[in-house]
Design a protein around this nucleic acid. Structure first.
Lengths: 335, 335
DNA sequence: TTGTACGCGTTATCAG
DNA sequence: CTGATAACGCGTACAA
């Protein structure tokens, strides 16, 4: 026999006030036809009883959960922390709660997604990368997930909506800056290459650079956005290389890679940044502005993007497949 | 008129198989009395129809959601990313989903907590710091939250369960190491001081050091676990100070602070780490092992802690108020 | 403005 | 082992 069992229902309040349960419900509904007097009485009683509507029951009845699943897979990328903070805050401000789904473990990924769908999330938001194209298809195919949104990336998938930064404008700005700064021998470090959640940064940079200078830069990619992997890549690729074979600037797909690359240049190649090899990143993670790094980077308009995301959730925006926003180039010392 | 409306219910499956809805349900329940044959038929039909039990309805009926709220407030601390990854993964492995609640905005905090409780989470897990003592009290008082667990911290609150690292053992190890390494003039940098989710590191270090050497170290604290704040603190406190007034080691409450302090020593004071001033941290965040920092730190047994957390959720562990685990000192170059 | 069936999809429990 | 009834807490639609 537990205490009074925490669960106060609308009936309890109704009984106390002396009205029907539905009147109580109306009191909690924004634009319901109820007399101010009734509402006031109800609210007061609710207060003393500690009643609040049960979202579980509400969701079950309305088929709207106000819950979204946030699928994340690369926890090694510090930018994820920034994104999560911004997204959860703005979503909450708009009445949404966030289910954090860790899909870094391939096996669990589909199970996790399935589970989220079983909770009838209003939408699934991908802010990961290497999310299995296959299970994504499955999820959509089964229509279990009402909306699938790819955040901060493009998606070629037909059934998906992308809310992201305008990569073309961004990389153009970076390219122009790098060129104007006098660098002539860039090397591009890319992240994982997937179909479902794609980034065009590499392609855009390569073609822009080729258009400008006539030659196509070399590049390489790593499997995850993990500074350590970028570190290893730089070591393996450039340690002991002849001066002539070294690039004069490393254009990185994002800061996570840039940070690792920067460490490698200094501690493994024994060279200086930017004097010997310059670096650019993307995202403007907090670390990028640390005096140790001072990475020249590009800041995504996260708030705009998050707000657009909300609009997509509410169905305000037309079912446009792509919502792209302009960010800002942040010039620091690294390039 | 939407398509077939995604929502396949047990009734649909039942109709297809030619049994009652309850038989279908039993097929999905681990230890239900149902013939193997029936189950097989049901499962096959479910597969083709794409049926999975609805967790909303299940929760409503069972009063168990298998959902926990993760309350986070200091997103500037990179260790949070590590914790979130570990927790979500282990929770999921044990059948729990995670609601990520951002409480960094004071105003939203209580609303967010209330909202989580309206979803009937099985427990609320605090991995933040400056969580408002007041709203915590409110939450517990209203009995809206069944279990309140403070992760990676101590809590003086009676109605709370702590799952954390043994700070006494940890700080003892750090103290001994620092002393053995020959440092004699330490300065402690602490984080925010709250009641609800407390850390004893400062107190323990101060008393241990005093016991060993006879003098009590000086210390200072910042409002958030943000490298930038530690950076500013070091600058403000030591920039331009006389050699004699400088400590020979900065013992930091965690890596977030250590990283910022390290930057300040090098870039603002123009000194070397560890030659001029050494540093120790806590948590062993990924960055701490970067060649730029090489921070001597202490790694919490996160997996053990997460598993203990699960046991608390399942009610296996006695309602012990505190569950502490032993971590490991990681010695690097910074001290 | 207020009150009344009925349904949302599942589980617990009892009858057959 | 299987079918049926009640209940979880609330929303919609309609009637009063």
């Amino acid at each position: 026999m537990k205490d009074q069992e925490g669960s106060v229902t609308a009936d309890d309040v109704a009984a106390l006030v002396g009205v029907s349960r539905w009147t109580v419900n109306r009191a909690f509904k924004k634009d319901a036809s109820i007399s101010a007097k009734s509402r006031e009485k109800v609210m007061k009683a609710a207060e003393t009883l500690g009643y609040v509507p049960d979202l579980l029951a509400t969701s079950l009845a309305t088929d709207r959960t106000n819950l979204v699943a946030l699928l994340v897979d690369d926890f090694a990328n510090p930018h994820k922390l920034v994104m999560m903070e911004r997204l959860t805050r703005i979503l909450r401000k708009n009445g949404y709660d966030t289910l954090l789904v860790n899909t870094s473990d391939e096996e669990d990924a589909s199970a996790a997604l399935l589970n989220a769908s079983q909770r009838r999330v209003d939408a699934a938001i991908l802010i990961g990368v290497s999310f299995n194209d296959q299970s994504l298809e499955t999820a959509i195919g089964a229509k279990r997930v009402k909306k699938l949104i790819v955040f901060a990336r493009m998606s070629k998938n037909e059934n998906t909506i992308s809310v992201c930064c305008d990569d073309r404008a961004a990389m153009t700005a970076i390219t122009e800056h790098v060129f104007a700064a006098g660098y002539r021998n860039p090397f591009f470090i890319a992240g994982p290459q997937t179909q479902s959640a794609h980034l065009q940064r590499k392609e855009i940079f390569l073609s822009q650079w080729e258009k400008t200078t006539g030659n196509r830069p070399k590049f390489a990619s790593v499997d995850r956005y993990d500074p350590k992997l970028a570190y290893d890549l730089v070591v393996q690729r450039f340690k002991g290389a002849k001066q002539a074979d070294l690039p004069d600037v490393l254009v990185c797909e994002n800061d996570a890679l840039a940070l690792g690359a920067c460490d490698a240049i200094r501690y493994e190649l024994g060279l200086r940044v930017p004097e010997d090899i310059a670096i650019t990143g993307f995202d403007d993670v907090p670390q990028a502005s640390s005096p140790q790094y001072e990475i020249t980077t590009y800041r995504q308009p996260l708030t705009d993007m998050a707000n657009a995301l909300v609009e997509v959730l509410e169905g305000k925006k037309r079912t446009k497949k792509l919502h792209a926003f302009l960010g800002r180039l942040i010039i620091r010392k690294s390039a």
